[in-house]
Computed example of a mutant assay.
Amino acid sequence: MNAYISSDINMVKELDPKRHELALLQADWLEKGGTIEVLAGPSFKPAPVRYEPPPTKKTPRHEKIAATDTPYMDKITRRDMEREERVAQRANDKANHLERIRKLSETMTYAQAIEQTGLTKRQLQRLAVEGGFCFKGAEHGSNPRKARLTEAQCAAYAERLKSFKEVGLTRNQAMGQLGVTFKTFNKLLERFAIDYPKSTRGPQPAFFPKTPKQ
C-alpha cells in the first residue's frame, strides 16, 4: 500500500519530533555495533521487444496468375484450343454424315436407307428436313404381301396349303405361314378347289332355366 505524503508544511513540521527520535535510535544502534541493511527497492524490468514482421503488399488474383503462373495460363489456352478442335471435328463429322445420307436419298427409298445405314425412319426424316432433300418414293408392289403371284408360286402355295390342312393348322395359321393376305388366301382356295375347314366354335355353355321361387 502506498504511503500518503502530504504537501501541507504544518503537517510535515509536526512529524519532526518523530524523525528526530528515529535518528537518535539509529545512532544509538550503530554505536552498539548494530548494522542497518538497506534493502533494494523494486526494480523495473521492461517487457521484451515484440517482433513485428514487415507488412506485405497484397497482389490481386489475376495479377498474381499473370505474373507468377505462366504455365497455368498456357494450360487454359491449350484446353480452350482442344475444345474448339472437338467442336469443329463434330461439325465436320455431322456435315459428312449428312452428305452421305443425301447421296443415298438419290437412289434409295426410306426402307432401303434404313437397311443400309441402320438408322430409324424418324432419324432419316430429320436429316432430310435439315439437309433439304427427299428420298425416292416406294415403287408400287414393293410390299411382298401385295405383290402379284406367278403361276409357279400359286402352285407351290396350293401344295403347302394342302399340307397345312393335313397337319391341322387353322386358316389364320396357314395365312401366317404363307405370308399372304386374306383375299389372296381365298383366291388360292377357290382356284385349286381346296376345301380348307374353317374354325368351329367350342361347345356352348349349358343353360339352366331359372325356376320360380316357391
Rank of each mutant, 00 (worst) to 15 (best):
72 Y>S: 08
113 A>G: 01
19 R>N: 05
77 T>G: 15
32 K>I: 04
174 A>T: 05
211 T>E: 12
41 G>K: 13
188 L>Y: 04
214 Q>G: 11
122 R>L: 07
122 R>T: 02
177 Q>G: 10
202 G>I: 10
151 E>W: 07
47 A>G: 13
64 K>A: 14
205 P>T: 04
106 E>I: 01
187 K>V: 10
135 F>P: 01
16 D>S: 09
102 R>H: 03
100 R>P: 00
31 E>V: 08
70 T>L: 12
170 T>Y: 11
47 A>H: 11
179 G>D: 08
90 R>G: 03
80 D>T: 06
123 Q>C: 02
91 A>W: 00
214 Q>R: 13
187 K>C: 04
211 T>N: 10
4 Y>R: 05
42 P>W: 12
42 P>Q: 12
163 S>D: 15
126 R>N: 14
33 G>H: 04
133 F>Q: 00
61 R>I: 02
4 Y>I: 08
103 K>Y: 01
210 K>T: 04
62 H>Y: 13
45 K>S: 07
92 N>A: 15
58 K>T: 03
94 K>N: 07
135 F>S: 01
164 F>Q: 11
183 K>L: 04
53 P>F: 01
181 T>L: 14
169 L>R: 13
53 P>M: 01
67 A>F: 02
145 R>A: 12
63 E>R: 06
21 E>W: 04
115 E>D: 14
157 Y>G: 05
71 P>S: 06
211 T>A: 09
40 A>I: 04
14 E>V: 11
97 H>Q: 09
121 K>F: 01
110 Y>L: 15
